[in-house]
Amino acid sequence: MRTAIEGLTVTLAGRDVLHGVELVAAEGEIAGLVGPNGSGKSTLLRTVYRHLAPRAGRVLLAGRDVRAMAPAEAARHVAALPQERGGDFEFTVREIVAMGRSPYQRAFAGEGAADRRAVAQALDQVGLAGQEQRGFDALSGGERQRVLLARALAQQPEVLVLDEPTNHLDVRYQVELLALLRAQRRTTLISLHDLNAAASLCDRLHVLHEGVLVASGTPREVLTPELLEEVFGVRAAVLEHPLTGDPLIAFDHRSPVRG
């Protein structure tokens, strides 16, 4: 589903956090948001999944304003994995993942066959098949992350919104998660701190700096030494990954740029 952000301005605590941001994620495209801490990445994503209302501008899903949709309808189109996880849940793994089916269920109707299939498929996709009865509060941080991703996948959205989804994951599961997202080819908006992961995963990157969109394009177009120094304040060389051919950023840890 094509997702367009038009003139988005968001104000928090009396201060504009985003300033007239415009970008498009085409249908099936993985669009990455990168930028320093505080640049507005999470704020933009929260606006896409309706957690925040913009002061100006809008988010369009296939041409429709997401704020004009009923909550259940919007949830059938957009699923989110935010950074804020909340407290411990006294639920099993399966119960958490099954919550992703709520936009499709009538009150008190219970699960149907389609719900059970979606939950089982989501658990299998994140490598948690067979662990349905474990308690969520007994899981490691990385396992919890995978359960919450499974909940979003069980929602079967057309647009997936992920805010730093590789946090708490070890290297193996980071690689597997990125491969899973790449294989699905559903419209995805994702924020990532790891620029090399962003270069490998994303079709297009959008760079935010102090609430302003300063660059958009393919990873090779965007991730230049000049931009890395100007936006991130680091000195780096951009090479070619020897295994994948993707841009590979080699940071200079000995002579950092000083702001």
Score class of each variant (00 low, 15 high):
Arg2Glu: 14
Arg2Lys: 09
Ala4Ile: 04
Gly7Ser: 15
Leu12Pro: 01
Arg15Glu: 06
Gly20Asp: 15
Ala25Tyr: 09
Ala25Ser: 12
Glu29Gly: 13
Pro36Trp: 11
Ser42Lys: 11
Tyr49Thr: 05
Leu52Ala: 10
Ala53Asp: 06
Gly63Phe: 05
Asp65Leu: 04
Ala68Phe: 00
Ala68Asn: 03
Ala70Thr: 12
Pro71Met: 05
Pro71Asn: 04
Ala74Ile: 03
Ala74Met: 08
His77Glu: 14
Gly87Leu: 01
Asp88Ile: 01
Phe89Gly: 00
Arg94Tyr: 10
Arg94Gln: 13
Ile96Gln: 02
Val97Ile: 03
Ala98Gln: 11
Gly100Asn: 08
Ser102Tyr: 05
Pro103Asn: 11
Tyr104Thr: 01
Arg106Ala: 15
Phe108Trp: 15
Gly110Cys: 04
Gly110Ser: 06
Gly112Gln: 12
Gly112Cys: 07
Asp115Ser: 14
Arg116Gly: 04
Ala118Asp: 03
Asp124Trp: 10
Gly127Tyr: 00
Glu132Pro: 02
Arg134Cys: 00
Phe136Gln: 01
Leu139Lys: 05
Ser140Gly: 03
Ser140Ala: 02
Arg144Leu: 00
Leu149Ala: 00
Ala150Ser: 01
Arg151Cys: 02
Ala154His: 10
Leu160Gly: 12
Leu160Thr: 12
Leu162Arg: 09
Thr166Asp: 01
Ala179Val: 00
Arg185Asn: 01
Leu189Ala: 06
Ile190Pro: 08
Leu192Met: 14
His193Phe: 11
Asn196Gly: 07
Arg204Phe: 08
Leu205Tyr: 12
Val207Glu: 02
His209Cys: 10
His209Trp: 10
Leu213Lys: 11
Gly217Ser: 14
Gly217Phe: 14
Thr218Trp: 12
Thr218Asn: 12
Thr218Glu: 11
Pro219Gln: 12
Glu221Lys: 12
Pro225Asn: 08
Leu227Glu: 10
Leu228Pro: 14
Glu229Lys: 12
Phe232His: 09
Phe232Lys: 09
Val234Gly: 13
Val234Asp: 13
Ala236Lys: 09
Ala236Glu: 10
Ala236Leu: 09
Ala237Trp: 06
Thr244Phe: 02
Asp246Ser: 07
Ile249Glu: 14
Ser255Gly: 06
